[in-house]
Each structure stands twice: as C-alpha cells, then as structure tokens.
C-alpha cells in the first residue's frame, strides 16, 4: 500500500518535472547558448560573453528595443483604457444582448495576426491616409490586444459590486471622482493585468508591427531580419535578456503578492 502510494507520488513528480522541462528547456537552452562560443554543438562548451558585447554595440538593436518598448507601452495603455471602459459599460449598465456585445469585442482573437497587419495597413493608408509609423503600429496592435485585455478585465470586474459606485455618487462624488476614488482602488489589479498582457503582446508582436512599420526596426523584426542570413548568436543573447526581464517582472509580482503589498483581485468586503 505504502509502496503503491510512493510509486504514484514518484510518477507524479516525474510528470511534473517533464512538464516543466517541456515548458522551459528551449528557453534555458537559448540562455545557455548565449554564453558559449561553439553554438552549433556546444559540448563541451567554450564560455564567452562575446555575443553580449556585440549586442551592446549594435545600434539596430537599440533602436528596435526602443521602438518595441514604445509600441508595448502605447498599446498597453490604450488597450487597458478601452478594455476597462468597455467592461465597465457592459457590466454596469443595462445592455441589451450582453453576450453578443461581449463576443463582438473578442472578434480579433480569432483573426490571424497577419491579416490584422495587412488589413490595418490598408485601412490606415487607403482610408485614413495615415502613413505607416509607430503611431499606426500602436493603433493596430491595440486592435489585436484589446480582445485579450477585455477578457482579463471582464473576468475580474464581474466580481465588483457596482452599488459601491451608487454609494459614492449619493455622497456627492461626480462620475470621474467616483471612478478614481472608489472604483479604481478596487479594480486596479485587473487594469494592470490588462496592461501587462497587452504590453507583452505588442512588444513581442511581429506581423502587425512589421506591416505597419516596414523598415522601422522593432526587436521581433530585427530578429527575423538577421534570420535570413543564418541565425546569429547575438539573437540568443537578445532572447535571453528579454526573457530575463519578463522573469524578473514575474518574480517581483510574486514577491509583492507574498508580502501582501499587492492583492490580486478584489477585497472580501
């Protein structure tokens, strides 16, 4: 009996280990590769920091990083704003055919990113007369990220008690004041979540940004560009740095939650 239980525990642990390996091996392998000289067959590895120093002096990467950050921040802010406004309207006010309205928000989820890229480019250029630039790239990425952001906000906001806003208004708060004094302090984790998701989607996006920007570099388009003349090890260094930033952000969030500085979700009262 005890043996059987131990075996089952062992199997479960093995399964879990395999799962994590599956999830993280490619990421760690790239991190490992970014520190070796003999990248094609790194056994035994010859350690070096050359790729990082080369990355540091490539001005393309700096420009790409800057552009990607800009697209990420812009998209994150816009998508979080629109998603919050949309979810609030849907939940707070009597809306007819709520499910349909919500579903229509999610449309871009099911459209291939390439198509969003091409169609937003066509629309921006032919209909609006906008040139392809960072601004149109932010707008187009927002089209895409909004659906995800909306889902994130909606899933949290269904638990918010809107009578709290009624109370604030009865006690003299105008709508904007009410939002910042009462609603936002309760729902900000949802808004932050929507921002982070949209930021990462736009930061890492290739197709939409590429069609809207053309020759203007972002990190993903640079990565793709270098790919055409063979994978260069600088890419490993780049990928490792980006992944590191994401992990540090996640770790920070985890620590904040553990120490109780940040509460995900709404308070019980």
């Amino acid at each position: 009996m005890g043996d059987g239980r131990r075996t089952s525990f062992f199997l479960q642990a093995l399964l879990l280990a395999f799962l994590y390996l599956f999830l993280y091996f490619p990421i760690f392998y790239i991190a490992f590769l970014s520190f070796v000289e003999n990248t094609t067959w790194p056994f035994p590895p010859l350690y070096t920091l050359e790729w990082y120093s080369r990355l540091a002096i490539m001005s393309d990467f700096h420009e790409g990083l800057f552009n990607s950050l800009l697209i990420g921040l812009g998209t994150g802010a816009l998508a979080a704003l629109f998603a919050t406004a949309g979810a609030m309207a849907l939940l707070r006010y009597p809306v007819r055919r709520k499910a349909l309205v919500a579903l229509l928000y999610l449309g871009p989820l099911f459209v291939a990113e390439v198509l969003i890229g091409i169609s937003t480019l066509m629309f921006n250029r032919n209909v609006l007369g906008l040139p392809g630039n960072l601004f149109s790239a932010i707008l187009s990425n927002t089209t895409h990220a909004l659906a995800f952001a909306f889902l994130v906000v909606l899933s949290q906001l269904v638990r918010y008690d809107w009578r709290m806003d009624d109370a604030a208004m009865v006690f003299g708060a105008r709508p904007l004041r009410c939002f910042f004094e009462v609603t936002l302090p309760s729902i900000w984790p949802a808004v932050l979540g929507a921002f982070l998701v949209s930021f990462l989607l736009a930061f890492n996006n290739f197709e939409i940004s590429f069609y809207n920007l053309g020759a203007v570099p972002t990190l993903p388009t640079i990565a793709w560009g270098t790919l055409r003349h063979g994978i260069e090890p600088e890419l490993y260094a780049l990928a490792t740095l980006v992944n590191l930033a994401v992990f540090v952000a996640l770790l920070l969030l985890y620590l904040l939650i553990r120490t109780g500085l940040v509460r995900i979700g709404l308070p019980e009262d």
Partner: peptide
C-alpha cells in the same frame, strides 16, 4: 438631478463601506 447634487444621505443594506 443626479444623485451627487441632492445632498441626501443614505444607509445601504450591505453597508457598502469603501474597502480601501
């Protein structure tokens, strides 16, 4: 007139105190 211009006080069933 919207509620915030009426100066009427209210006590709600579930208290509805602002949690933060």
């Amino acid at each position: 007139l919207p509620p915030y211009l009426r100066n009427i006080g209210m006590v709600f069933q579930d208290f509805l105190l602002f949690p933060h």
